[in-house]
Design a binder for these strands. Structure first.
Ligand code: FES
Ligand code: FES
Lengths: 177, 177
DNA sequence: TAAACGCGGAGTACTATAGTCCGCGTTATG
DNA sequence: CATAACGCGGACTATAGTACTCCGCGTTTA
């Protein structure tokens, strides 16, 4: 019934970072801190994207997530379905069969096929899904890229490098004890 | 965020009955029992349709609801908005401004305009709303009418008449006491 | 071998949905 | 003219979903 939770916003924003990262794995915790969102919550979202074949996971220390395919081949519809789980926009309770004049035994003409009201909702849902299917990760990444200054991708890479260095420093600090 | 609750299904099915009733008022309780749904719950939905100018209410004993306009002039979009209250399909939390490299003070190029991801969702929502806006109560009523046998509208009127008679009988039973 | 990874399950706080109950003011009708 | 049938609104409840957190397991690599 419901749709488009914040998980979708988090997920797609992360995937755009993976486009920028260009095949070097990014961990879910890095992705979370880079965007100022909850690491634990993001960690619940990525396994869904992995199971949908949108992203590929590598375990271990320098592991993380990479896109499983070229961003041109990843549609918004796929992403939303992977995260939300293909819930319908409208779920019909089959009211029409409960009409009192039928007395509990609705005739075939009343319950056959899809209810006309339901059909309208299915058309509306299809319009929405078609729009989502037409949009690709690469297309949106390009329009985001146009807004950012040329130095921005470099800043991001520097921030990510700084994180691994800080981890090394912590290790050196811990070792002599 | 969420959309298309069961209230919408109840509401539209009721409105279709009002099309059939052809300007004779039907009470929310009659509508509920005719369809086997909760009278108390339906009574919460109709005031919304009334305030939206879709339906006109008349108080008193033989009162009830009538369509405020010709069914050709009532779109599904209006009905859904009246009942659900115009909630967006996707509500953007403005993640983009929280990027760690901005350090709490995001630059104008990052927060200006609508986020590209949000823009896609708005387009998808518009597709859905356009489909809903194109559909009218009269159009759906016609396709429902085609499925039902010729005797059905008569059966409905008979059922409604039976209800008022039963009420009269209850009154007679109570009076002699 | 320990710290950094992904993965899954359990648990929590908050909010929305679906539905109930009651009482108010109005209005036809016997 | 009383009463039963109307619409309207507020308060209430129960269930479910959302947005999170926490913990522990197995893997990897520096
Ligand atoms: S019975 Fe579900 S929409 Fe008509
Ligand atoms: S910031 Fe909300 S969708 Fe991008």
């Amino acid at each position: 019934m419901a749709q488009m939770t914040t998980s979708v916003e988090y997920g797609i924003h992360c995937l755009l970072w993976l486009v920028v990262a260009d095949d070097t794995p990014l961990s879910s915790r890095d992705l979370a801190e880079l965007q100022g969102i909850s690491p634990s919550f993001l960690a619940k979202i990525f396994p869904k994207l992995e199971k949908a074949g949108i992203v590929h996971a590598t375990g271990g220390v320098r592991g993380g997530y990479r896109l499983a395919r070229a961003p041109e081949k990843i549609s918004f519809l796929e992403i939303v379905d992977a995260i939300e789980g293909r819930k319908p926009l409208f779920d019909c309770q089959e009211i029409r069969g409960r009409c009192a004049v039928f007395g509990g035994k609705p005739p075939a003409w009343a319950t056959g096929g899809v209810c006309s009201i339901h059909a309208v909702m299915l058309r509306a849902e299809k319009s929405m899904r078609d729009t989502l299917a037409a949009e690709t990760l690469a297309g949106v990444a390009k329009s985001v890229g146009r807004k950012a200054p040329a130095a921005f991708p470099h800043d991001i890479r520097a921030w990510l490098e700084a994180r691994v260095s800080k981890r090394g420093a912590a290790r050196k600090r811990a070792a002599p004890s």
